[in-house]
């Protein structure tokens, strides 16, 4: 498990966090005793089967819903003490399943990332323009920056959303399944892109994903949610502990420790 001793300044910390939903009548706890500590420049995957609570955890970390108990610290400040606007300068989001208007040019959409810093009319300063251009360049869309998002492929549009988060220039980026709807090549491409971003800029990225095999190869740390229990560590730590062996029912896929990936189970009879 992660140590609670802070040797280096961490960007995102969960302290005995428990997540779930609460209304007047009942409290549904989805996972508890969550502890982790993400350092600057780390790429962290959040992994779990469908319905395990990945989205709930991401929503809690991004202050969309409150924590049941425990605390989330960003830059060592409790998230509940941060105003929307202060939070916007510390973490940016890449979400799927939002009804995003595609009737904007690539440049305009990415420039929205500067929203927390611009004046009431949204005027872009020289610094804003530089950051927007850098962000578009980083995801390799400079050629397409004046195209309308409508005309882009799913993979390109995903890159636009990532560039918007980069333009927001926050030390932490949270992503909800950034690789859904993409083919195998573009999945690898996007994850590779995330890896290069954290290496180059010392930003930290936490992304929820179903791409366990790719994540194991690329990520510095993995947060695994399995039946309300959360395990955190480097990929090799989790493999050694055998955490992945019990993730799925064993009838179809098994974790192969030699290749460090999940494999289809071959029917031998």
């Amino acid at each position: 498990m992660s140590s609670k001793v802070k040797s280096t300044p961490s960007i995102l910390t969960a302290n005995s966090l428990s997540i779930g939903y609460k209304d007047k009548r009942e409290t549904i706890e989805i996972a508890s005793q969550i502890n982790f500590d993400i350092q600057p420049g780390e790429l962290v995957a959040l992994i779990g089967i469908n319905g395990s609570g990945k989205s709930t955890l991401l929503k809690t970390l991004s202050a969309i819903i409150p924590a049941l108990t425990g605390d989330v610290l960003i830059d060592n400040i409790s998230i509940s003490n941060l105003q929307n606007k202060d939070l916007a300068s510390k973490q940016s989001l890449v979400l799927t399943n939002e009804t995003v208007s595609k009737q904007l040019s690539v440049f305009e959409l990415v420039a929205l990332g500067r929203h927390p810093y611009t004046n009431w009319l949204g005027h872009l300063s020289q610094k804003d323009l530089t950051l927007v251009n850098e962000a578009i360049d980083q995801v390799g869309l400079l050629q397409n920056q004046h195209k309308t998002c409508d005309a882009l492929s799913d993979g390109q549009f995903q890159k636009v959303l990532i560039a918007r988060a980069l333009a927001q220039n926050t030390p932490l980026i949270l992503m909800d399944e950034p690789t859904t709807h993409l083919d195998m090549y573009h999945k690898a491409y996007v994850l590779q892109l995330l890896k290069s971003i954290v290496k180059r800029s010392q930003k930290s990225i936490l992304f929820a994903s179903h791409e366990i095999n790719l994540a194991l190869q690329l990520c510095d740390k993995i947060i695994l949610i399995d039946q309300g229990r959360v395990t955190y560590g480097t990929p090799s730590e989790l493999i050694q502990k055998g955490t992945f062996n019990s993730l799925f029912p064993k009838d179809l896929i098994v974790f192969d420790e030699v290749s460090q990936s999940f494999r289809m189970k071959m029917n031998t009879d």
Binding site: I64, K85, E98, L112, H115
Partner: peptide
């Protein structure tokens, strides 16, 4: 006009708008 800038943020949906500091 007061919310002109925030209307643009709302084009990305409420969750994005909130994450960009929109009240």
């Amino acid at each position: 006009l007061i919310c002109l800038k925030n209307l643009n943020a709302l084009l990305l949906g409420e969750n994005y708008a909130k994450s960009m500091g929109v009240k």
